[in-house]
Write a protein that binds this DNA or RNA. Structure first.
Length: 305
DNA sequence: AATACCTGCAACCGCGACTAG
DNA sequence: ACTAGTCGCGGTTGCAGGTAT
């Protein structure tokens, strides 16, 4: 596959730090015309930069949704835990941290977390240690992360899952928004939804934003979910979880999976299906059980939206 | 005050994935 | 099925500012 040489090597193009004027031009252009078409953007906008450079500058610095300021201890803890699960998949990790960019997280990891914990041993991720302690216990050298590699399975069709209220009745007019969220790819749904769900911060907020509006209690639930996640779950299942925005999933869902084992089959028909290939039966069963296990978080979400 | 070293961050580079023709 | 163009990601580099000597 013939690939053109990097455009940054073209003669006459500016390189290095961006000037405020360049920032302004780029920002104004994107405000008017939107993101995308990076290759031709510099020419159209009148910038002497390569498209790649423009994209990077916008995504990592100029976007209005970017959160400034230091990484909070909560964010740090989340980064650590996600890294132990996903490895150096910074874009995916950034997808769980609204307003943070993959570059920022990557830099943070290299400069703070990895460095300060080099000599430490493998932490017990499943314990409820205080955040700072958990951070100190992490070591990039020592950790052999149980990295989850997501599969690029495209899902172009979604089934609305009827809302199940606490009374146990199904309410078709109250869909569980997080699950019924239109066409998606399981590879990185939070990234790929940009077009369907509006502009995001590095594609990080498309589905996450609504979820971030839920109460602090629910956010806490999501932390617990990650903290208590059982790494022995099947890899592809875990992968699917991180590619969907199941924030707020109950922390003890694994136990509930077993409890609700008997009710799995009845829910199978409600699950997401792929146009290209159906999920295999075990996936369906497991997912059905998970959804069946506790719908409180969906309730909260549904009411929020 | 001058210099060397360290740190954090922005930017660059190259590759693989994706898509359209 | 194949090719070419484009995009996105992860690794790496370079530099500015801070700190130590």
């Amino acid at each position: 596959m013939g690939r053109k040489p990097c455009c940054s090597k073209e003669a006459g193009l500016n390189r290095g730090a961006w000037s405020s004027m360049e920032d302004q031009i780029l920002t104004e252009y994107i405000k008017l015309h939107g993101e995308g078409k990076w290759r031709g953007l510099p020419q159209r906008a009148g910038l002497r930069r390569c498209g790649k450079s423009c994209r990077l500058r916008w995504l990592n610095y100029l976007r209005p949704t970017i959160k400034r300021g230091n990484i909070t201890p909560e964010e740090e803890d989340l980064i650590i835990r996600l890294h132990s699960l996903l490895g150096n998949r910074w874009a995916l990790i950034a997808g769980r941290l609204p307003g943070r960019t993959d570059n920022e997280i990557k830099n943070y990891w290299h400069t703070k977390i990895a460095k300060t914990t080099k000599a430490q041993q493998i932490p017990n991720v499943t314990t409820n240690q205080p955040i700072s302690e958990a951070a100190q216990l992490h070591s990039t050298e020592a950790i052999k992360p149980r990295v989850v590699r997501t599969k690029a399975t495209r899902c172009t069709k979604a089934v609305i899952i009827p809302f199940l209220a606490q009374d146990g009745l199904v309410h078709n007019n109250e869909p569980a928004a997080a699950v019924a969220a239109g066409p998606t790819t399981s590879r990185s749904s939070m990234v790929d939804h940009d077009d369907e769900y509006g502009k995001t911060s590095a594609g990080t907020e498309s589905l996450l934003s609504p979820l971030m509006m839920i109460s602090e209690k629910e956010n806490e639930m999501s932390c617990s979910f990650i903290r208590d996640f059982d790494f022995e779950l099947e890899e592809h299942l875990l992968s699917d979880f991180f590619n969907e925005d199941l924030v707020g999933f109950p922390s003890d869902f694994e136990n509930r999976v077993e409890i609700n084992d008997a009710s799995r089959k009845s829910e199978e028909k409600l699950l997401l299906t792929s146009e290209d290939e159906l999920l295999d039966c075990s996936d369906l069963q497991t997912m059905a059980a998970l959804i069946d296990s506790d719908l409180d978080w969906l309730q909260v979400l549904s009411k929020t939206l």
